[in-house]
Computed example of a mutant assay.
Amino acid sequence: MGPLELLIVAFWVMLPAYVPNNAAVLAGGGAPIDGGRTWKDRRILGDGKTWRGTLVGTLVGIGIAYLLNVLRPTAVEALGVSVPTFPLVAMITLPLGAMLGDMIASFVKRRLGRNRGAPLPGVDQLDFAVSALVLTAIVAFEWLVAVFTLPLLIVVFVLTPILHVVTNVLAYLFGFKHEPW
């Protein structure tokens, strides 16, 4: 695969993991997952991790994967790039893993004494991608290994922080987020 093809495939296979956290921000609010509980005098996750946001984010990611499967023949023809289809388990684990990764990062940030919205460089940009891939590897290992070659993984881990920063700045500028990170 050439560089452009790697970029297209990386974006394609990660889109179900890229979109959920953005959808959760738009649909957020409601009851926090931790119910306001604390652990060692700090919130477990914080008000930013809600049941509604997690459910909507996961469902939107599943919908994106389904839509990509439907659009695949047209995309292959239009792009001239062979993009993979998503098996049902990957359709679920990529977005769910992304949401879980964001919660794990929130938990870690609370343990480090960081407030909601405080940046944690590196973690903020990759938590969701790593968790999405790990959860998918647990239940769809053969598919993950067949799709995520080493060059593709490298592109994913370079592309993801760039996209994360750009989308967060845009969300901030449009008033969807209170901070640009």
Rank of each mutant, 00 (worst) to 15 (best):
V60L: 03
V60D: 03
V60H: 00
G61M: 08
G61I: 08
G61W: 13
G61Y: 02
I62R: 03
G63Q: 01
G63W: 03
A65E: 01
Y66D: 13
Y66C: 11
Y66S: 11
Y66V: 11
L67K: 02
L68K: 01
N69Y: 02
V70Y: 14
L71Y: 02
L71I: 02
L71C: 14
L71H: 08
R72N: 09
R72C: 10
P73E: 06
P73N: 13
P73T: 01
P73M: 03
T74G: 15
T74E: 14
A75M: 06
A75I: 08
A75Y: 04
A75P: 02
V76A: 07
V76T: 12
E77I: 12
A78R: 10
A78M: 10
L79I: 08
L79H: 05
L79C: 04
G80Y: 09
G80I: 09
V81W: 10
V81F: 14
S82N: 15
S82C: 06
T85P: 04
F86A: 11
F86Y: 10
P87A: 10
P87W: 04
L88R: 12
L88D: 13
V89P: 14
V89C: 11
M91Y: 07
M91I: 04
I92E: 01
I92N: 02
I92F: 13
I92C: 09
I92V: 13
T93W: 05
T93L: 04
L94H: 10
L94R: 03
L94P: 11
P95V: 00
P95L: 01
L96P: 06
G97T: 00
A98W: 14
A98C: 09
M99L: 12
L100K: 02
L100F: 11
L100S: 11
G101I: 02
D102Y: 01
D102S: 09
M103H: 10
M103R: 07
A105I: 13
A105D: 07
S106L: 05
